[in-house]
Design a protein around this nucleic acid. Structure first.
Lengths: 271, 271
DNA sequence: TAGTGGTCTAGACCACATC
DNA sequence: ATGTGGTCTAGACCACTAA
């Protein structure tokens, strides 16, 4: 365990030996104030990052964590609360607090905002087109924080919706993943996997996506992509460029999707 | 002030006379448990809805609210916390808690997700094309919860970005507003207004948007719209259909935007 | 019955803004 | 100096789950 900074004048203190490190008597120049619960949160994030608790598993109870960190339960609570609202942890009353995973039905489509125009919830079929290791193109390397020419894995796949008894392609996804963490990712592995792709990344490669940023535009379908999506060349398609991040805000996936929005739409909640 | 439900066995109770209304001894069949802080929150929302505190103004201090509702400060705190994360209130340490408004620079573009591809933050110019009262079309009436044929206000406008020393149209917005709350909305009023449109709605019509849902698609530019946006007919455009809500989750605006995403993109954060 | 998270309280003290 | 929100504590009790 690590020392916690104590920002107080320590009337009762025996909380570690970090007394003079920060707070009103701090020697540092500028911010130098971090609430205890933020420090606890940082430690918990470190634990997640280090794999101390794996997705789906429960973390120690609030009381146990409070004892471990020598703080009150309420302080641990506030740290966990924030992590829960950020979807890193999931609280379950009576059972415990669990590391979030992409396995659950509820979070199945947390990152896929495409919805059928009618409310139908039919899941999309996957069809893998390609999976190969390559040197990351300059732009990809830049966005993923790789050195020029470093290894990357490229994946291309289709998502298809049931239409009557036929299947219509709706999404064409191109993914780039950093080669190092995704060493053993092969077409076979992807092909065999049943379940969300991000769940595979968690289970097999210890990469947990917790956040992403998307840039959405309207584009005209290029010839090759139009063919794959079975739409006329030049049709309007939604281009969705996604950069996904793991715990340390490290980018670990670049994805470019082309969505056919004839019978689907990209749904977004503003607040 | 209103009575609060007490879900406890009331060891100390003199908190109103609502003792038997709910809780473990409830006669109601199903949910029948609502934490105190949720009740407080509901009361505060009612206050906002009733205009007891106007956007930009401060609400009473936590201590004062705690006294008024006869609960502890911590309980009020939790209610306010939730409303703050939902962007209904804004907390300012040392100053107070304020009703959120669309006036502030920070929330200027809370609902407009369109960003220039380069980071430039040049604000968009507005150009009003139309503002007229009419009978709401069936589809509009349905979405806004109006009776068939009820009055509505339609607004059409362009947003233009500076490009060199020229202006390029980037957004074509079509809005429908319910006629009743927006009684006095005219082209002149809109024309004269400096500032965000939602700020006008707050200030002049007491309509505060707090939430919205958007459906985004790629479409081919129709002739008329292509002309207004100065793009070739059939160009891919982003179609953004937005339904905005006020306090009681009442829909009060339907907006259909066409975005030219040649030099801009729709930005979205996933978590 | 025991253990977990969820609610609520009361009180102390800190950080920030204002007078 | 005062008042506001922000942090932290300690303890009681409630709601839910599982053995």
């Amino acid at each position: 365990m690590q020392e916690l900074l104590d920002n107080r004048d320590m009337p009762d203190s025996d909380r570690g030996a970090a007394a003079a490190a920060s707070g009103s008597a701090a020697t540092a120049s500028t911010p130098s104030f971090s609430p205890l619960y933020q420090q606890i949160k940082a430690l918990l994030v470190q634990g997640l990052q280090a794999g101390e608790w794996l997705p789906g598993q429960s973390i120690p109870s609030e009381i146990e964590l409070a004892a471990r960190f020598r703080v009150s339960q309420g302080t641990v609570r506030k740290a966990i609360d924030e992590m829960a609202t950020e979807n890193m942890l999931v609280r379950r009353q009576g059972k415990g607090t669990f590391v979030a995973t992409h396995a659950e039905q509820s979070t199945q489509y947390r990152f896929l905002r495409l919805m059928p125009d009618d409310g139908s919830a039919a899941p999309l079929q996957r069809h893998l087109l390609e999976c190969r290791r390559m040197r990351a193109p300059a732009e990809v390397a830049r966005l993923l924080g790789l050195k020029a020419g470093e290894a990357a894995v490229q994946v291309r796949r289709l998502l298809l919706a049931a239409e009557g008894r036929a299947l219509r392609p709706v999404v064409l996804d191109d993914l780039w993943l950093p080669g190092t963490p995704f060493k053993g990712l092969t077409a076979e592995r992807l092909q065999a996997w049943r379940g969300p792709m991000y769940r595979l990344f968690e289970a097999e490669f210890s990469v947990h996506m917790i956040r992403a940023v998307e840039k959405v535009r309207a584009v005209a379908a290029p010839a090759e992509e139009a063919g794959l999506l079975q739409v006329p060349v030049g049709s309007p398609l939604l281009s969705v460029e996604r950069l996904s991040f793991t715990y340390g805000d490290r980018p670990v996936e670049l994805r470019r999707g082309l969505y056919d929005t004839a019978a689907h739409h990209y749904r977004n909640e503003l607040s």
